[in-house]
Every structure is written in structure tokens, then in C-alpha cells.
Design a protein around this nucleic acid. Structure first.
Length: 308
DNA sequence: GTCCAGGTAGGAG
DNA sequence: CTCCTACATGGA
């Protein structure tokens, strides 16, 4: 990457340091699909219209950005929860009485939910159904390159809904979206008529937010939960995907439970930051680091007879 | 060739 | 409401 026009590296001074392995999981573990690791271990990515680079340093995480982009540092600090509000939530999770969560949490110290743009989260997870994380990254990168606003050094922002709504079928097809192209197009057409959608959605109670998201084509319960969690900072949202199903079945003995039941369990067992707990379990399961010992559950959390 | 992937939509029972 | 399946595409 050409780097002549970048600022020098500076420490980001997070309230809590992020080890290199946790940083990698945060940036390349399925929360966002917009970061990539350079050969020297530096991470480069785009969020919103911000292009930035991160790397672990002797004094903690270091950052740099294009010269002249004055808000890179503050954008990064917000994105990475620099003031540590999630540290308290993580501490308050029931890890003391839950050995599975305890080990998953210990495997990824400092892991946080990235505070993404609603737009970024929605586009990313509209592409996510029935796809591996690596393939989602390819799709989202292609969308940005072909339809997004150019930034410096050949990087691009994600496309606007207007750009997606009017994009040629051939262009979308060239992004390897498959049937998800119709999801993006349909959602773009609906949101195009509602330019303040993100602000409107942000003002809603989480339940209403989830309903509103699910009214969009290509958005079901799981994608809505991810957008609420990653894009709207609803830490209580508990997305249930294949990895979480597996983790809860194997480590918590919840075999045969349906996704809606598992979601109910997750919210009841993990509480106000269930989404953060979910991310620990997701990461641990995906890396094969999930402790297989079954958890003894309080009887109050017995399997519900009906969903929701 | 077969199977699977941070699921969803549409239809049948 | 609860199952069941088709869906595009690419990698193992």
C-alpha cells in the first residue's frame, strides 16, 4: 500500500488494551467485513467514510490515517469503544458462575462489539446469509469498489442505497452476490424513500427496531439481530447463527432447541449485554476454543414450551 | 460430483 | 404457527 500520504503512527490510548489476537478477531471475526491485514501485521480498513490503519504497539494500539483527514482518531475511538463502556458490561456478565463463558471470555480479552454505522452493518449482513465470512468480505469489497465513493489510496466507502437501487444487474452479478442481489436491491428501494431511516430506527425501542428491520427484504430474525447489535449498539440483542446454535448445544446442553428458544435463553441467561456474551461464544466456537464442559443451568432457565 | 456456508422467503400442512 | 425447501455462488 502506498503510504506516503499517511500520518505517522500514534498511540490510540484506549481505556483497555487490546491484544493482537483479540484485535484480529474483532476486525476479521464476522462483526465487520471491511478490514484486511497487511503483510507486516497492520490492519487497514474503512468504516463510514473513514479510512484508517491499526497495529499493536509497545504502548498499546497505534493508529494512522490519511493526512488531512482530521477526524480519523476520534472516529476510531468511537468505533473501538475507547472509553471502555463495554468493559463494565463485560465485567458484569455472569462469567463467574458460567465456566463456558469464563473460558470464552478469557480466550479473547478485551473483545468488544464494534460500534458500526447502521448502513455498514445492514449491507454486510444482507450479504451474509448462507455464506462464509471470507466470502462475505469478497462480496462487500466488490460492492464498495464498483459502486462506492472513492476514498484515498484506492479504497472506497460502501455504496449508498441510491447507488445500489440504480446499479446494473450485471454489476451486482459481478459482485458474486447470488440471490442476495435482490435483497440489496429491494432494501435499497425501500430505504431510498426514507433517507432518515437510520435516525428513525435509532430512536426506537429494540423490539420495534427489530420489527422494522425485519420488514426489509433479506432481513430475517438473525440479520435483524446483527444489525441491531453491531449497527445500533443494542448490546442486549442476541443473534443466533449456526455457530451460536452449535455452541449452546454442545457447551450448554441445549440440543434440539430452536433459534427463537435459544435467543430467549441467551437474553435471560446473559442479561443486558447478551450480545457481547454471544460474541465471546461465537468467536470461541469458530476458533474451536469452546470449552466442552456442560453448564448446570438454574431451573428458571428451563426450556420454554413456546417461543418468544 | 457432493456438501456446506454468521439465513430468508414462500408455500404447505 | 411450524415445518420444508429453493435459493446463487464459491471453496473444500
Amino acid at each position: 500500500m502506498a503510504s506516503a500520504d499517511w500520518t505517522p503512527w500514534r498511540p490510540l490510548r484506549l481505556a483497555e488494551d487490546v491484544p493482537a489476537s483479540t484485535l484480529a478477531e474483532q476486525l476479521d471475526g464476522g462483526q465487520t467485513f471491511r478490514w484486511s491485514r497487511e503483510a507486516d501485521g497492520t490492519w487497514v480498513g474503512v468504516f463510514g467514510r473513514t479510512l484508517a490503519a491499526l497495529r499493536p504497539g509497545p504502548l498499546g494500539l497505534e493508529w494512522r490515517g490519511p493526512k488531512g483527514a482530521t477526524e480519523t482518531e476520534s472516529a476510531l475511538r468511537h468505533y473501538l469503544d475507547a472509553d471502555g463502556s463495554q468493559a463494565r458490561l463485560s465485567e458484569a456478565l455472569p462469567w463467574r458462575s458460567d465456566p463456558v463463558l469464563c473460558s470464552a471470555r478469557a480466550a479473547f480479552p478485551g473483545l468488544r462489539i464494534l460500534r458500526q454505522d447502521p448502513h455498514e452493518a445492514l449491507i454486510g449482513f444482507l450479504c451474509s446469509s448462507n455464506k462464509r465470512i471470507l466470502q462475505i468480505r469478497v462480496m462487500v469489497a466488490a460492492l464498495a469498489e464498483k459502486l462506492g465513493l472513492p476514498l484515498s489510496d484506492g479504497f472506497h466507502a460502501l455504496p449508498t442505497w441510491a447507488a445500489l437501487a440504480k446499479a446494473d444487474d450485471a454489476v451486482l452479478r459481478a459482485c458474486s452476490l447470488g440471490y442476495r442481489a435482490a435483497y440489496l436491491r429491494g432494501t435499497a428501494q425501500k430505504l431510498l424513500a426514507r433517507p432518515r431511516w437510520a435516525e428513525e430506527f435509532a430512536g426506537m425501542a429494540t423490539k420495534d427496531l427489530l420489527d422494522e428491520l425485519q420488514s426489509l427484504p433479506g432481513v430475517g430474525p438473525k440479520v435483524a439481530a446483527c444489525v441491531a447489535l453491531f449497527g445500533f449498539g443494542r448490546l442486549e440483542s442476541f443473534p443466533v447463527d449456526t455457530w451460536v446454535v452449535q455452541a449452546l448445544a454442545e457447551a450448554y446442553g441445549l440440543r434440539g432447541w430452536k433459534p427463537a428458544q435459544l435467543e430467549q435463553f441467551g437474553k435471560a441467561h446473559f442479561g443486558e449485554a447478551a450480545g457481547l456474551a454471544q460474541q465471546y461464544l461465537f468467536s470461541a466456537a469458530r476458533q474451536g476454543a469452546l470449552r466442552p464442559a456442560a453448564v448446570t443451568l438454574p431451573s428458571a432457565l428451563a426450556r420454554p414450551k413456546s417461543r418468544r
